[in-house]
Nucleic acid binder design. Structure first.
Lengths: 212, 212
DNA sequence: GCAAATTAATGATTTATTCAAG
DNA sequence: CTTGAATAAATCATTAATTTGC
């Protein structure tokens, strides 16, 4: 009824047959990261459409790619941050009795293999699929009431996506977010500050995708 | 573009303005449950489209509704089953020493609070928005390697969706599923026997949905 | 009987995991 | 080892049931 009307636009890159997965170009990544830095976390359908259109100038791309990118980027940034927080946390414990300089050599068996190598540099280890035993786990349970800090000057619906000028407009938003809870004033906005929620699919143009 | 062409059929339910969420009719639910019973778990985009078209005869409905329905139904059936399994499991312990064989009554302190009241009937308590502290949790970690049993005679792509006559056609499918593993022959098709995976969004027709 | 008040279901979103291409 | 893609689990939010006071 309306499937073959929109001309050719997503029919390029038929380079090597099945193009199993999107490979973002440097420009595309740059722009996406910029948007992320601007606070975009969960772009709405319209935003995705818009972003996709813009990024299409730098190479083949579909709405779902943008969607997934934000999804993954957000999640992985969070993981990264949580890992660091955890490191800091355990560090606090390690350096526990720490008046001014101290000598740390308090806990006898705790130095054994801790120091700063308890969580060495493994920055992921089990983050990539493989063992799938949830590993050390915990971690996310540790942070339950820290994800407030929402900054009300992003996710402006369809407007000012690319303009990237931090005009403080204070949208108020007044959704149903708990007004309190976010006691701490200006936290460095960098992790999970979303507040826009939209459908979550219906972007791209139903490409068959013969998978495998 | 195509919103006001197909006469009155999707324009009913305009009862109380914004209809924030889909309320399936009895017929729709019946048909969906039938499809589920037939083994459909994660319908492909085409299947969703098809199902949606059929169900539209009984009231307003969109692709995403069908998608969500299967998603939720599958998950909740699983939950239900798991709960029962858990009950059965603990029952096994409770009735441990009993009929002809074994006495098993080894673990003394394990009877303490299991029974069938460990996870009483609270079925939600905190499921409705409010505390959101992940509550009791657990449960799902208990069953990690039980979801095999896939039956290769459902999910027939686009065909035989509604005809509902169990003609054994054996599609072979040969995707990338492990060919073995499903040793047991005919398992009662009822819980999580999917094997078709598809995009997962891009169904419905991008209804604006002005949300709030 | 009926309508406000609760509670149970369940539709819709978001987040966490997992898989596998590159 | 990184990360795009896909799915499952957890949540949130609104509607339908059900209960309760009148």
């Amino acid at each position: 009824m309306e499937s073959h009307s929109s001309d050719a636009e997503a029919e390029n890159v038929r380079t090597h047959s099945s193009v199993s997965r999107w490979s973002p170009t440097k420009e595309q990544i740059d722009m996406l990261e910029n948007l992320y830095k601007q606070g975009i976390r969960t772009p709405s359908t319209e935003q995705i459409q818009q972003i996709t259109s813009r990024l299409r100038a730098y190479g083949h791309i579909e709405g779902k790619n943008v969607f997934y990118w934000f999804q993954n980027h957000k999640a992985r940034q969070r993981q990264k941050l949580m890992k660091q927080q955890t490191i800091a946390y355990s560090n606090r414990f390690l350096r526990a009795s720490h008046p001014i300089c101290q000598n740390v050599a308090c806990a006898p068996y705790c130095l054994q293999r801790s120091g700063f190598s308890f969580y060495p540099q493994q920055s992921k280890v089990l983050a990539s699929g493989g063992i799938s035993s949830t590993g050390p786990l915990g971690m996310q349970r540790m942070f339950d009431g820290m994800q407030s800090s929402e900054h009300p000057d992003c996710n402006r619906e369809v407007l000012t996506l690319f303009p990237l000028h931090p005009t403080g407009i204070l949208k108020e938003k007044t959704t149903h977010q708990v007004p309190s809870l976010a006691s701490t004033s200006v936290v460095a906005v960098d992790e999970d500050g979303h507040l826009g929620n939209q459908p979550f699919f219906n972007f791209f143009t139903t490409e068959p995708r013969s998978r495998e």
